[in-house]
Design a binder for these strands. Structure first.
Length: 239
DNA sequence: AATTGTACCTGTCAGC
DNA sequence: TGCTGACAGGTACAAT
């Protein structure tokens, strides 16, 4: 949004003044009061490369920047999305506008989390994936946070004890901070803006490890389906 | 109104 | 080797 022709016409010649993030959205504030919003979906990549670099398959956009650098958008599955609109109209992007709190932000306290949990129903794993509940938690980090907190992903959010709520709160923040420290989780395609893979995939305790021993107790990790998503957990540590 | 299932795409891998 | 089906960091939207 808008059309690719409009997008190219409108972004050409502008300058990136600032880069922000909100949930899984990237926001490039441009000159002339515009913001370019990017959601990378599952396989999207934004990478800075030399113009001499070979153009790989699934490259959908190349922006020529100053200093002989290109910003390329590569996305195999094409679930990524772009928006280019006046900065004052960002609320028109539903998914962005409806986002819940930043889990690493100031306002996200244990007290806040407790109250928010009380207002919702459903299974805790599905709630963690709901971007209107908390922004930015995806399938990997949801499973990893629940494992660290020792909570069964199928447990109803309302049935969590004070103890469990507290453990989950700290697990969410811990696992996100670690993920960031390791520069992301490259299970498959993920790379950062310089094309570098992250390292957190080597620290995963349950995600993608069906049948392997739980690092806590040695029981085999199970996989179930929750809300259409694969969910990995230890049936012994996560009751 | 809130929750759930399905569609959108392409690539990879296991099993036959 | 080649085919088929299941599955993959996510979200929007239709259906319940």
């Amino acid at each position: 949004m808008p059309s690719s022709q409009e997008f190219v016409k409108n972004i050409a010649g502008k300058t990136i003044q600032k880069l922000r993030r909100r949930g899984k959205y990237l926001l490039f504030d441009m000159t002339e009061g515009y913001t370019w919003v990017v959601h990378l979906g599952m396989t999207g990549q934004l990478v800075l490369v030399s113009p001499a670099e070979r153009i790989t398959m699934h490259t959908h956009l190349i922006l020529d920047l100053d200093d002989n650098v290109q910003l390329r958008y590569i996305d195999t599955r094409q679930f990524g999305r772009f928006y280019l609109l006046p900065t004052g109209e960002l609320e028109k992007i539903r998914g962005l506008h409806a986002l819940g709190p930043e889990p690493l932000g100031e306002e996200f306290t244990l007290e806040f989390f407790r109250k928010r949990l009380a207002s919702r129903r459903g299974k805790i794993k599905q709630l963690l994936l709901d971007q209107t509940f908390i922004a930015g938690i995806g399938n990997i980090y949801a499973d990893e946070a629940l494992h660290r907190a020792g909570i069964n992903p199928e447990k109803n959010a309302v049935s969590l004890t004070e103890e469990e709520i507290s453990r989950l709160f700290y697990s969410i923040r811990e696992v996100l901070r670690e993920g960031i420290r390791y520069r992301g989780t490259s299970v498959r395609d993920y790379v950062d803006g310089r094309g570098q893979k992250g390292g957190f995939q080597n620290c995963l305790r349950v995600y993608g490890r069906r049948g392997e021993p739980c690092p806590g107790c040695g029981s085999p990790v199970e996989r179930i389906r929750l809300g259409g998503r694969s969910t990995y957990f230890c049936p012994s540590c996560q009751k």
